[in-house]
Design a binder for these strands. Sequence first.
DNA 1: CCCTGATTCGC
DNA 2: GCGAATCAGG
Length: 229
Amino acid sequence: MSWTDERIEQLRNMWEKGLTASQIADELGGVSRNAVIGKAHRLGLKSRPSPVKATEKVAKAPKPVAPKPIAPAAAPRAAAPAFSRPAAPPRTEAKPVAEPRPATEADAADAPPPKPDTPRIVSIGPGGFIRQGPGDQQAPIPPAPPRRLVPAKPSPEIAGKTSLLDLNDRICRWPMGHPGEPDFHFCGVAVNPGFPYCVEHCGRAYQAQLPRGTRRPPPPPPFGGPRVR
DNA sequence: CCCTGATTCGC
DNA sequence: GCGAATCAGG
């Protein structure tokens, strides 16, 4: 398979919709997940949360990775491959990282004082416990992180469509489109009383039983017909 | 082990 | 330009 304009277009759309590379590859067909990712990068559209790129700790000790016993004579690929990318790309303003010292347990305090520079004056009570001053109450109130129960962008294709969550026993649950595709939805019109489908789709779902031996018309296609790719 | 995306590099 | 192989985190 080659990257025709149309396929590139599909790749772009799906990628920006947040579909995974696997899904895109599956949808396009004829290409692997790697092919999709590679093409996406070549197109310049990358980003999207990567499970692997999030780490940017310099404190990581350089791990030499045991050289493979085979093919030592293979030409070294780069001049200095071992340290080709230890330098953190200054993606964000690289603030001076605190020196990696052997962290003590005491350092791991959950609530460090907001102003480390200000000397805190504490008093020791009888018995050695630390008295808390009026302003010393540890702020135990973590700012509640704003949470969104519903994605802000439910994908324009689904807007207004009857989704799986919208199903109830009064609306037609005849599937429209192909499951797994972004615009897959359900019929959603008023149901034929006593049936899970509307009148029209009941006609499709429930076909009269014909006498044995008679030729029957082709059965109703599942999910609206054969998949076209 | 499965998944994910990123990167490398021979073709 | 392409994508398999590989890496590396979840």
